[in-house]
């Protein structure tokens, strides 16, 4: 459970808590936390409902460096109420993005020729089921405010999602992640809107068996999202692998990162609609049906394939 940067690098990303991820994803010794446990800014709502509180309300925010870039980090703690977004948690998340964009504006005003490699970026490590139902209005509002902040960041500050933690990224936060520029996942990362248990509850076990972990990972896990194009970069489950991938992504020109988005232009929306069309056409019973359509002759082999081989072998879905 040590927070030392050196020992964190080889650790499983999945096993790390929010603070360890925040510290380990940026360069050694560069992370400074904003509104940490010392400030004791916990939820004002949970005590009234007899629910446990946390000093940081389940999210670590701060700034570090990747190379010469100031990187504003938000890292959610899935073990605290499923990483759910409440009022304080949401405000910390929204404002770290706002501070990144305001820093960008100030830095560029002072030096219009500031090279891209020194401009601010945002990294969000998701570990959440979405809105915290105990403070749902504030939580939902935070989702909307976050989307607004992303809009304001466009053309200025790249926003990168990293997903590889226990809870994954579900609920409204699934939308939020989809609205970022780049998504980096590990095969153990999970991304979706309605979580597996909720689908089963609403649609029945015949439609979606949430106890079938293999099926859940085939449907929401990093490998599937990579084939579908929802995930841009697939990496191994370690802090170091995520940090290196972040470094490589942030070394690209802004225009390349913007091109990696899933939404945000008419063409991208039209592409998403083609995916819906395709889904109706091939009526997949399992994600393996889609993998096969994408050109993977033996989709069964992909399930347990080691990551380096998977990255060489797997065909990603392309629609003309």
């Amino acid at each position: 459970m040590s927070n030392k940067w050196d020992t964190l690098q080889s650790q499983s990303f999945l096993e790390c808590n929010a603070r360890q991820r925040a510290v380990g994803l940026v360069d050694a010794g560069t992370f400074t936390e904003f509104i940490g446990p010392k400030d004791r800014m916990s939820s004002p709502h949970l005590p009234l409902m007899g629910e446990a509180i946390e000093f940081d309300d389940g999210i670590v925010t701060g700034v570090g460096l990747i190379g010469k870039r100031p990187v504003f980090v938000a890292s959610q703690e899935g073990r605290f109420i499923g990483g759910a977004v409440g009022e304080v948690h949401g405000a910390k998340l929204v404002n770290i993005v706002r501070i990144a964009r305001e820093s960008y504006d100030k830095m560029l005003a002072a030096n219009p020729k500031l090279p891209e490699g020194k401009r601010p970026a945002v990294v969000i490590s998701f570990d959440t089921g979405g809105v915290r139902l105990h403070e749902a209005n504030a939580g939902l509002l935070a989702h909307a405010e976050l989307m607004d902040q992303f809009q304001d960041c466009k053309g200025k500050v790249p926003v990168i999602s990293v997903i590889g933690s226990r809870v994954g990224c579900f609920g409204g936060m699934g939308f939020v992640a989809a609205a970022t520029d780049v998504i980096i996942m590990s095969p153990l990362g999970r991304l979706g809107l309605t979580g597996p248990e909720v689908i089963e509850q609403e649609m029945g076990k015949d439609e979606f068996d949430a106890s079938d972990r293999g099926m859940v990972y085939r449907t929401t896990g990093g490998k599937h999202k990579y084939i579908m194009g929802d995930c841009n970069v697939l990496v191994a489950d370690s802090i170091e692998a995520f940090r290196k991938a972040l470094g490589e992504v942030l070394a690209k020109p802004y225009a390349d990162l913007a091109a990696m988005r899933r939404i945000g232009s008419l063409e991208k929306v039209q592409y998403q609609l083609k995916l819906v069309d395709l889904c109706v056409k091939i009526a997949p019973k399992d994600s393996k049906d889609v993998w096969k359509y994408a050109g993977n002759k033996n989709p069964d082999a992909l399930v347990d394939m080691p990551l380096d081989l998977f990255l060489k072998t797997a065909e990603r879905l392309k629609i003309a």
């Binding site: 446990p37 446990a52 946390e54 000093f55 389940g58 703690e77 073990r79 605290f80």
Partner: peptide, 16 residues
């Protein structure tokens, strides 16, 4: 002077 440790997971605790 100051130390924070732990995560408030289910069946768990944090301490300052």
């Amino acid at each position: 002077g100051f130390l924070h440790y732990g995560v408030v997971g289910s069946g768990d605790m944090e301490v300052i």
